[in-house]
Design a protein around this nucleic acid. Structure first.
Lengths: 244, 244
DNA sequence: CGAAAAATTGAGGGATCTCAATTAAGGTGG
DNA sequence: CCACCTTAATTGAGATCCCTCAATTTTTCG
């Protein structure tokens, strides 16, 4: 069902770009066929030539850096429909890695195919460019998060970001979202330790903001969570009203 | 002397892209004429429509976010030749601001002019795209810095980054670099307080790694500074060997 | 079902912050 | 070019947030 899978990407791109039906049709052949990865597997590694774009078909992945000390820092969470390394072909080699945070299916699209895309569908090519831009925007927000927010705020902010992104993709209902992250994943994303993440999550539950059970996150008080995390609900939507 | 000023940008772009002499010639008209800003002035503000690219002719600027709490987080330092918002025209409005950290001269280039650039010089347009990509790369490194390094390491890493970028641009000699940053600027870039930055700088001086006098930073032990900051001297050079 | 991974909890330490005061530097007007 | 005034740097003391280490329980997965 390549067609079905491609719909995920179409929906994601549609969150910030207008896609013609021609563009949607071009998407299937563009993506090709997906590859499966087990949780923890490296989808791309630092040092690799960046000649492949990774697009998530299902599951969750991340971009991250392993430090010589063994510490991991996650820079971005990749949900279904998200694309990584759209622009990377412009560099000589990749400096970070992509890792599966759950079992997942990834489309590995040769960057050459992206380079040829404008000839097939100009609008689709621009949509991918916008995708990269939105991702850069999110990266800046992460810098703010890490630099100027407390642990409570950081985690609340991350949860809000993820929920907002899932909302837009139609994932989760009634404030209940699939949540495959380990407390260590969250720690590595927010510059904390797993132990401290545990204590913060406990507090979030105690305050009646969230519930977490059987890998399902339920947001009981979205407004409260946003207030705690100083989350601006509009920041991820910017791309939506983008020109043309 | 528009031609002379444009040479700064040509040199910057040449650090990661090959520029033909035709591209260099196209640069002057592309940039137009610069505007002056005083230290502290806002060059662009959150909420503005992102229809202008800011390119630094002289002085130092930064991209930053002001939080509702009044705190500032800097996401990027813009040195002469650096371009900000190359990709931003794809969004509806900017979410961060650009601020002058010293008196500086900025070329405000209408994004429309960038959109038209491929028709004038394909290679030059690609060079600007690569510029944006390298900047995204640096942003990711900042995330690692903020998330997984101590205050000592962060500051050492930032100093190494700045020195490396100035080296490439031919700014500073014999390990002496112009340094207009306030300790609060460094704090706001690295998620620290000015007081703590002061103590770390004192330590760096005590260890014989640097000297700072009359707005001139002298790096006495570059290797030592890099080791302390876990700085990988190759990370900024990636663009250099970029394809085509 | 059993082994491995993840979550949870406690105790204690350290890095960084906050508050506050003082000194040094820089910029401006006379 | 000096005097003044504002801004930046410096230093101290005490408080906090988050980390480290370690043990235990719970959950997940093969």
């Amino acid at each position: 069902m390549i067609g079905l899978g491609a719909a995920v990407v179409a929906r994601k791109l549609a969150t910030h770009s207008r896609l013609t039906s021609a563009a949607q049709a071009a998407l299937g052949p563009f993506l090709g066929h997906a590859r499966d990865f087990r949780r923890g597997a490296l989808i791309a590694q630092a040092g690799d030539p960046p000649n492949v774009i990774s697009i998530v078909k299902s599951g969750v992945a991340c971009r991250m850096t392993m430090l010589p000390t063994g510490a991991r820092q996650i820079h971005a969470i990749l949900l279904p429909g998200d694309a990584a390394d759209v622009e990377a072909s412009l560099l000589a080699r990749r400096s970070d890695s992509i890792q599966a945070l759950s079992n997942c299916a990834i489309w590995p699209v040769p960057s050459r195919r992206l380079a040829d895309l404008p000839r097939a569908d100009e609008g689709l090519a621009e949509a991918f460019l916008r995708e990269a831009t939105v991702n850069a925007e999110i990266a800046r927000e992460w810098i703010v998060n890490l630099g100027r927010r407390t642990a409570d705020q950081r985690i609340a902010h991350l949860l809000c970001e993820l929920c907002t992104r899932m909302d837009v993709m139609g994932v989760g209902k009634d404030g209940a979202y699939p949540f495959i992250f380990t407390q260590m994943d969250i720690a590595d994303a927010q510059g904390l330790t797993a132990v401290h993440v545990n204590r913060v999550m406990k507090m979030l539950k105690a305050r009646g903001l969230i519930t977490l059970k059987a890998r399902v996150l339920t947001v009981l008080d979205r407004r409260g969570l946003e207030r705690l995390g100083l989350f601006d609900p509009t920041f991820l939507h910017q791309g939506r009203a983008a020109a043309a």
